[in-house]
């Protein structure tokens, strides 16, 4: 299949390893991946903060750039949630007939990574190997907006060597909420503190999710508190192979020396980084 990758601005800029892992995974599964370079952002930050007019222009851009794509895949549940849930509404609000039509036409071809693998490709075993103790946090937008259901868990269960542990109170929000984490920083931290306590209870080395935004939030506090637990995007776990995992036995993480982060996250092997420069 020809897949156009929407990497999401957030991943592009801060978490390139997630994009790289997605490319490696999809290519390993025999697909052709293309990265339309004009892409920037789906507009979620603007939309959620109340800047709807600004969002319309970004939605139009997105639709133009991907209109010819056979399939669009994004390793970001909240961006796909935004596109699926709100693009149609925004299009109607804008009154732009062409946009309404284009959105309608494009939407069925836009997938979040785990949904693409499980629902579209009907795959669960993607041939990954990741010998670590992992817990999965279902992010709110993946769970309640995009309704990915248990797709990520089904994929994780089939990963070789993984020790998957259930996260207590998994469905509770981590307190991120975009600008909420800044506007209501104290409340956000109170929520995050509870989430981190649950993660630590599991004894997992790695907390994974289908959104790097929430992982950045969780990882940001883990890092500050010098915790050993690392945050790793689902795509990176699924892209990991036996070859990579034998090189080293410590999982990759969202926080580490940026110089090493792009040497191909999955091949270079995990870098220990909960405590940078210990």
């Amino acid at each position: 299949m020809n897949i156009s990758l929407f990497v999401a601005c957030f991943n592009d800029t801060l978490y390139p390893e997630t994009g790289i892992a997605t490319v490696q995974l999809l290519e390993r599964l025999g697909h052709r991946v293309d990265f339309p370079r004009e892409q920037t952002c789906c507009g979620q930050v603007h939309y959620n903060t109340g800047y709807q007019d600004e969002t319309v222009s970004l939605a139009k851009r997105f639709v133009d750039i991907f209109s010819d794509a056979e399939t669009v895949v994004a390793p970001s549940a909240s961006c796909v949630g935004m596109i699926r849930e709100f693009y149609p509404k925004l299009a109607i609000l804008s009154g732009d007939r062409k946009l309404i039509r284009d959105v309608d036409d494009l939407l069925p071809r836009v997938y979040e990574l785990s949904q693409f693998l499980v629902n579209k490709l009907e795959l669960e075993d993607v041939g990954a190997c990741y010998p670590h103790r992992v817990t999965y946090h279902p992010t709110c937008h993946s769970l309640r907006m995009l309704r990915v259901g248990d797709a990520p868990l089904r994929l994780l269960k089939k990963v070789k060597g993984i020790d998957l542990v259930e996260l207590p109170g998994a469905e509770e929000c981590c307190g991120f909420g975009g600008t909420f984490a800044i506007k209501n920083a104290d409340t956000s931290m109170a929520m995050l503190t509870d989430k981190i306590a649950r993660i630590k209870e599991t004894g997992a080395e790695v907390c994974t999710a289908s959104d790097n935004s929430c992982l950045m939030h969780i990882g940001g506090a883990l890092n500050r508190q010098r915790e050993e637990v690392k945050v790793v995007h689902l795509a990176e776990i699924l892209a990991s192979t036996e070859a990579a995992s034998t090189e080293t036995n410590s999982p990759n993480s969202g926080y580490k020396k940026s110089g090493s982060q792009n040497s191909g996250s999955t091949e270079s092997g995990p870098t220990k980084s909960g405590t940078p420069n210990p």
Binding site: P16, M189, Y255, Q261, N262
Partner: peptide, 9 residues
């Protein structure tokens, strides 16, 4: 209370 990931190199 949280660290922030820097822009990737």
């Amino acid at each position: 209370m949280r660290d922030l990931r820097p822009v990737a190199e």
